[in-house]
Design a protein around this nucleic acid. Structure first.
Lengths: 239, 239
DNA sequence: CGAAATCTTGATGCAGCTCAATAAGAGTGG
DNA sequence: CCACTCTTATTGAGCTGCATCAAGATTTCG
């Protein structure tokens, strides 16, 4: 069940057999979370982190007027809310965007790991730093990219992230979000997202349809997005 | 020299006398950095973190067309680039926005601290998580707030952060950025920032002039910004 | 199969951008 | 201390990318 987490970690660091065993053990109790379920509410004290085994989750903030901004997307293999180990509560809500399979890992376990397996503890720190790097990339997108480039950038990022954990095929990847969800990631309205998707499709860059992203031409998409995967810290190694 | 770092840390956690001594020791070599100096270039391998003792620094990304997005601002007492300890290189540039005084802390020292003073290591992890929380708040601003609310939000955030480290007075705080810098934080043009500042001033919310933010009415400013300081994880305690 | 959510497209509006020109500082060298 | 230059601030006029409003088409799901 934690194969994707291992793929993700090993893409950047060594993970010993012993450490792998530890991870397998703490990832034990498996839980199903139905789509559109709020997993964690802003401000709520939490004493666990979540290993996302299958599905998509998003962190978001609702505004007074009902609009929403998603500040992060998580995919299979992501260890969510590791930062809550230090922060003790979240500054935003977390929702399952699709049906999800998760494993709930008590902070005590993480505490224990940082003490007994400090190298693994470091990897957890790395993961939260990687999340922060992705936040910065999103800030740049939201602040300076056009709606088209921003959308293209998101598709590129998820292509790379999905590929690392083996969730791409030669055409693209499953990405079962609604256009409304996309709009909430991109700081746009769903109406405009719809037009942008049309343009991406018609100009042969990428096709978002029925919960999939199919990339027609990654080079072109990347150029349109001004995308540079460096911020994802994928080791320079075999692609 | 590290009084502001201590204020910041102690606002959220206990720091023992021994830990304080350790921090004082590693913060030893002091260096001046002139305004507008690029401290770290994107991609460059780095083996040190930076304790900002005095001044303002920003992380930013330049776009092909010359526009720029600042993704984070750092003030006195911030321990910059702690994340580089794990990431080993940065995904963006860092620049001194004003004349700065810094202390360069080799990663070896941080390594040593995480081993010998694990509680301090935890505090460093906390700091990087706090940076991430601020990133998320900026994403929400960039994605969903109007130019006015976004500017007001930034002024509120910095008021709280500056106050923690004792850099506010009863009117406001020193904030020697240009309107161009502000625009680069806010995802706006400097022309529009100028107009927004005028509106903030004329509606009695806040005045940005000659390198200072003066807050006319924090309540009103906060309401206009839809600002909620929770994401800064200031302990619920004496304000 | 019916209801609700999502998608799609058109028409129109406006927040923030671009272009432009002037004013006001802030260094710098003589 | 002034002349010169360069950067920053200010304001106006006009434009445009994305929002809003609206209405129908399609898909999803109970």
């Amino acid at each position: 069940m934690i194969e994707r987490l291992l793929l993700k970690l090993r893409r950047r660091h060594e993970v010993s057999a012993e450490e792998e065993a530890v991870l397998r053990r703490i990832a034990q109790p498996i839980k199903q979370v139905p789509a559109r379920t709020v997993q964690i509410r802003e401000g709520q004290r939490i004493d666990f982190s979540t290993l996302l085994i299958e599905g998509l989750m998003g962190r978001y903030k609702d505004m007074r007027d009902g609009r929403r901004q998603i500040s992060a997307l998580h995919i299979s293999g992501d260890f969510l809310d590791l930062h809550s180990f230090m922060l003790k509560r979240l500054d935003h809500d977390v929702m399952a965007l699709t049906d999800c399979t998760v494993s709930i890992v008590p902070h005590e376990e993480i505490e224990w790991i940082t003490e007994e397996h400090p190298r693994l503890g470091r990897l957890f720190w790395f993961e939260t730093n990687l999340d922060a790097a992705i936040h910065r990339a999103w800030e740049v997108s939201l602040g300076r990219r056009s709606a088209l480039a921003r959308t293209a950038h998101l598709f590129c990022e998820l292509y790379v992230r999905m590929k690392i954990v083996g969730l791409t095929d030669d055409r693209g990847y499953e990405f079962p979000l609604t256009q409304i969800d996309l709009a909430e990631c991109l700081g746009l309205t769903s109406v405009h997202v719809n037009r942008v998707l049309k343009e991406l499709r018609e100009s042969g860059l990428a096709t978002f349809r029925s919960g999939r992203v199919d990339i027609d031409n990654f080079e072109k998409l990347q150029r349109a997005a001004e995308f540079d995967a460096d911020y994802l810290f994928v080791d320079p190694g075999p692609a």
